[in-house]
C-alpha cells in the first residue's frame, strides 16, 4: 500500500524535483518496494509524455551529421585502443626496410601458401563445430543477459553502500520499529558526517501523544550516552521530513534512534526507543 506522502515523493522524484538528500532518502524507500518502483516508472513515463505536448519542431539535418561525426570521432580512439590495433614503435622503424621486406615476404609467402591451404581446411571444420556451439550459447544468451543485468544492479547497489559507508555523503540509515514502536513506522536518515547535519524522513508514525515528543538520538562510539539530535514532530498523516544537527560532535555514529520523551525533550534519554537503525 502506497501512502499519499509516498505518492507525492514519487511524483516529485519522477520529475527530478527532489533535492539531493530527499532523492537519496527516497531511493532507500524505492530499493525495498517494488510497488513504489512501479509507480515511479509509470509517473516518469507520464511526465516524459509531456514532451509530446510541445509545439513540434524539426531538428536541422546538419545537426545529425555533426552528431554522427562526433560519435565517430569518439569511437575511433576506442577502436584504435583495441589490442588488435596497437601499433608497436618498432613498426615505424621497420618502414625503412619495407621494400626488402616485401620481396622477402613474397618468397616466403609462396612456400607458406601450400601449408596455409591445409590449415584453412582444418579451420573450416573447427569453425563449423564452433558455430554449432555458438547456436547453443545463443539459445541461453537472453537468460544469461538478464542474470548479468540483475547482478550488475546488485553490485551497483553494493558499491553505493560501500562508498557511502566509506566517506561519501550522505550516509543513509534506515530505521525500523522496535518492540515498543508502531509496527508500520519507518524512517530514513541521510547523515552528512562532514557537515555534522542530517535529514530524517518518517512515515507512519502516529502522534507521540499529549505532553510527549519524539526525540532523535545519534549513538556515537566516542560518547557514553546517545547525543540528542532534537525534537521530531510528525504531521497528522504520520509523516515528516526534518533537518537536524546533534548537540555535540558525532564523529563515529553507529546508530540513530527515536524515543518518546517528555514534551520539549530531555538532555539524556529516558523514554522507550520506538525506532532504531544502525549505520
Amino acid at each position: 500500500m502506497i501512502s499519499e506522502a509516498q505518492q507525492e515523493q514519487a511524483a516529485l522524484y519522477a520529475l527530478d524535483l527532489l533535492s539531493a538528500e530527499e532523492t537519496a532518502a527516497f531511493e532507500v524507500e524505492l530499493s525495498v518496494s517494488a510497488e513504489l518502483r512501479s509507480l515511479v516508472r509509470e509517473l516518469r513515463e507520464s511526465g516524459a509524455a509531456l514532451a509530446h505536448a510541445v509545439e513540434p519542431q524539426t531538428a536541422p539535418p546538419a545537426l545529425k551529421q555533426r552528431v554522427l561525426q562526433q560519435i565517430a570521432a569518439e569511437a575511433a580512439p576506442r577502436a584504435a585502443a583495441a589490442p588488435g590495433n596497437v601499433i608497436r614503435p618498432s613498426a615505424a622503424a621497420f618502414g625503412r626496410w619495407l621494400p626488402w621486406a616485401i620481396a622477402a615476404g613474397l618468397m616466403v609467402a609462396c612456400a607458406l601458401l601450400a601449408r596455409e591451404r591445409a590449415q584453412l581446411q582444418d579451420r573450416v571444420a573447427q569453425q563449423e563445430q564452433a558455430t554449432d556451439a555458438a547456436r547453443l550459447r545463443a539459445a541461453h544468451a537472453e537468460e544469461a543477459a538478464e542474470v548479468a543485468r540483475a547482478e550488475t544492479e546488485r553490485m551497483a547497489q553494493e558499491s553505493r553502500q560501500i562508498i557511502a559507508a566509506a566517506q561519501t555523503t550522505p550516509v543513509l540509515v534506515a530505521l525500523s520499529a522496535t518492540k515498543d514502536g508502531p509496527a508500520k513506522a519507518q524512517a530514513v536518515v541521510a547523515w552528512d558526517a562532514a557537515r555534522q547535519s542530517g535529514t530524517i524522513k518518517i512515515n507512519n508514525l502516529p502522534s507521540a501523544g499529549n505532553g510527549r515528543d519524539y526525540q532523535l538520538w545519534a549513538v556515537d562510539a566516542e560518547h557514553k550516552d546517545p547525543i540528542s539530535a532534537g525534537i521530531v514532530r510528525v504531521n497528522a498523516d504520520g509523516t515528516t521530513v526534518v533537518e537536524f544537527k546533534p548537540t555535540a560532535p558525532a564523529k563515529s555514529v553507529q546508530a540513530f534512534a527515536i524515543s518518546v520523551e517528555r514534551e520539549g525533550g530531555v538532555p539524556k534519554r529516558e523514554g522507550p526507543i520506538v525506532l532504531l537503525g544502525t549505520a
Binding site: A11, L15, L43, G47, L50
Partner: peptide, 15 residues
C-alpha cells in the same frame, strides 16, 4: 506538491 502529485496521477490515468 499535491497538485503535482494529483496532476501526474491523473495524466497517467488519462493516458
Amino acid at each position: 506538491k499535491a497538485r503535482i502529485r494529483r496532476g501526474l496521477l491523473r495524466l497517467r490515468d488519462g493516458l
